[in-house]
Design a protein around this nucleic acid. Structure first.
Lengths: 219, 219
DNA sequence: GCTGTTATCTTAACGCCGTACACTAAACAC
DNA sequence: GTGTTTAGTGTACGGCGTTAAGATAACAGC
């Protein structure tokens, strides 16, 4: 019934099926919905069969997250590829894409940043995950005079931190939460646009009004 | 051996002992170290006895977090009480205290923002947790002309998001992590000070250099 | 003093979980 | 045909949250 020879195609097909099942369960019900038994049942195997392909549950989840990371990176690439280098719009598109992806793949992000203790998964973030891409966009914007000249790493970290905070708060409050706000209730993406103005203008008083200097090319 | 009369003192003492055990276990080993059995063992009871005081594990953890929240709020109050109202220093102290408390009580924050699904715990954040306190500090700073006039809620949300992002990243990377940065490796608190400059000045080019206009009163 | 009630606690058990172990069956190499 | 390897199974262990049933001690009312 089952082929028992070293058939790398078959083998990696099974492995891919396990990964897919785990990914779906994660997206549907969060990490607590992912158990060796639930994953196995979805693939049509017994729980222990998974150990032929993955060391343990941690390994399985790590590889699921790793796959998500690669999707994330290409998502970011797509989001900025048509925007002019050195422009603030390109930087903004980076942040927007980061936020959008996080909101559309909530469980990935939750798992990634729940990695308390081992890190491991997190190590990919600065290396991959669009960090160098974004760093380059910031450096180009500085060279083009679109933003103030400063330590690009510091600026990247500043912007990344802000977007990441927005993501975290959006994920903490529930699914399409709107943060409390004086008049209106704003979605995460709307908040992003408002924050972008503060980022550019700063909070220093005696400046031209926000409306006048707001980037016209922004969506 | 055990008093079996309705003795509210004894009863609440036991409840407090359970809460304390759970809190210690949480701080020591994170959420995974907190099990009904481990908490019970530390108090000297059987696991099921806890159900006389708490509905279930979720309820127990929620109350632990709630207690931590109250400590958090008074921590913030202490941090700003001596600083002049309407000053940027007071705002800064708020953010600094938020960050410091989070770094010193890592597991509380992790648990609070791992509340995926129910929220519940999170609901306290905007209400308590220093949010109104901080909002007032921002509004006063606006009135005093220390920062630009704008929707105070939006500014509060902007600053809160930034600090919260910093907290989250610091908690994700391990214990006293330093974020990757061009030259030096900066701690969370050092990054906070650098970010504060960007917040005030913005990223708009053709501004006086950061050094000249940086707030002199900042620590 | 006896009886019931109530509060507090225990032990046993259920169904999950991750995982280790022993085992089986099929495909291959020789 | 005989081994070896590969991919799978079933069983079992200890730990988890939680439920259910029972024990015991202090009280109230008679």
């Amino acid at each position: 019934m089952t082929p028992k020879v070293s058939d790398p195609v078959r083998a990696s097909e099974t492995e891919a099926a396990i990964l897919e099942a785990a990914r779906d369960l994660l997206a549907e019900g969060g990490l607590e919905a992912v158990s060796m038994r639930s994953v196995a049942a979805r693939v049509g195997l017994s729980a222990t069969a998974i150990y032929n392909y993955f060391e343990n549950k941690g390994d399985l989840v790590r590889q699921v997250v790793h796959q998500g990371f690669e999707r994330f990176t290409s998502y970011l690439q797509d989001a900025v590829k048509d925007l002019p280098k050195g422009s603030r719009e390109r930087m903004r598109a980076h942040g927007r894409a980061y936020l959008r992806f996080a909101l559309e793949n909530r469980e990935y992000f939750r798992v990634i940043f729940a990695a308390h203790g081992e890190a491991g998964e997190i190590d990919e973030l600065p290396a991959g995950g669009g960090y160098p891409m974004f760093r380059q966009a910031v450096a180009e914007a500085m060279d083009a005079g679109a933003i103030r000249s400063a330590d690009p790493d510091l600026v990247v970290l500043y912007l990344w931190t802000l977007v990441h905070g927005l993501v975290t708060l959006q994920l903490a409050f529930e699914p399409d939460a709107r943060c409390p706000h004086s008049g209106e209730q704003l979605t995460g993406l709307e908040l992003f646009e408002r924050f972008a103005d503060f980022v550019y203008q700063g909070l220093r008083p005696d400046q031209p009004s926000l409306a006048e200097t707001t980037e016209v090319t922004a969506t």
